[in-house]
Design a protein around this nucleic acid. Structure first.
Lengths: 210, 210
DNA sequence: TTTCAAAGTGAATGATCAATCACTCACCGC
DNA sequence: GCGGTGAGTGATTGATCATTCACTTTGAAA
């Protein structure tokens, strides 16, 4: 029907093997599977963010990406690997945002850089998809491949925050801990509450969509 | 078949309306539905902790409780309300543990009490079911009833920690934030890792099963 | 123009699961 | 012993979903 082949919108994608360098054709042409995979992974982030791993169908991911269910299975061997690809993509985005935040920091002390990274993270997750996917991933981390992907992502951002800011271990730990508190505030819908107890948790947290 | 009517093992249960006071019969007699509900809720905590909301069948909850699937539906109107009952039960246990910890505190300063509550929490969640249920609840908090139950529980323990310890708002916030970090460490399986990055996150956290 | 491989799809299939129903059995007051 | 009420179950239903398969379309090279 209205197949609407969307021409990889600005997605740089890690097209590492460019054996077909001259094949930089026009848009609207069929894309190669390798180029399409990251686009579908990005769509999977949005779809899985809505319903979680068990609550999201492959059909929903296909619809989000504008392709058929069957083709999702041609691009990824199964649901589990698709979720892992989405999670990897998620942490890629986060590290990039932290780097951008660090680069934009006014105060270049360790604490200043860490703070700027916090701001950048709050900005990044203003659409909530990246945040929700992390929470859903925690929920199914007992699936071995997903747990491994989660640890890989956490290692990535922990190491990055530490190395890029030069902050002390305790400060990096606090950075991550308050990130988790932020996740709780958003998922539980505490940000919008005015009660005293909610104020205790919300204090000083830069909320997405604030 | 092997119906094996288990006689409410030691579960005090809030049998609030005892219109049938004389009916304190023996064990091995059929239990009333009101007395059985909390027992099934406790079983639901364990079952849902394993698979999450979408990944756990009512049959699994029934098996955990030692009753048939059909009878679970006679005790609770549906899966959603059963999960909510499990979550309420979970936060009840947590508040009780915090109170016990506070009572056992050596140092009765605000910080000392908060610390003792942290120890008691670490002890409580050593079997991980209560911890995992909270993570799963975050994951499906967009289901209105479940989100409301989660907020209710968080309000409960935040208010309790604040009132019982008398600590400053910022310290209570930190208490909750590091609780969330603890959840991440356990679900992602970081506690067992030896790498430097994992050490940053693990530092000073009292791990369950440590 | 023909041809071939890769892109992409519609329609099954087989399993699983929430929810329902019709039923049996034990107890209690009479 | 009889009748009713509530405890508890096995079998079924209707829907949903991951995965597969057979099929069509497209683009470009020979």
């Amino acid at each position: 029907m209205s197949a609407a082949i969307t021409p990889l919108n600005g997605l740089t994608a890690s097209v590492s093997e460019c054996t077909f360098t001259y094949m930089t054709q026009r848009a609207n042409t069929l894309s190669t599977a390798d180029a399409r995979r990251p686009v579908v992974a990005a769509a999977a982030v949005r779809a899985f963010a809505r319903g979680g791993y068990h609550g999201t169908t492959i059909a929903a991911v296909g619809a989000e990406a504008g392709i058929s269910t069957a083709y999702v299975f041609k691009l990824f061997p199964g649901k589990e690997q698709l979720f892992v690809a989405a999670l990897d993509y998620c942490f890629e985005q986060i590290e990039a945002a932290l780097e951008a935040g660090a680069q934009a920091a006014q105060d270049v002390s360790a604490a200043g850089i860490l703070d700027a990274m916090g701001d950048a993270y709050a900005e990044l997750i203003s659409d909530r998809a990246l945040l929700l996917l992390q929470v859903h991933a925690q929920s199914v981390a007992d699936v071995p491949e997903i747990g491994a992907a989660l640890r890989r992502g956490l290692e990535r951002i922990t190491r990055f925050a530490q190395a890029r800011s030069g902050a002390a271990d305790a400060d990096v730990q606090r950075f991550i801990a308050f990130g988790q508190l932020c996740h709780l505030i958003v998922t539980a819908g505490i940000a919008d509450l005015d009660d005293g107890w909610a104020g205790v948790l919300n204090a000083g947290i830069r909320h997405p969509r604030g």
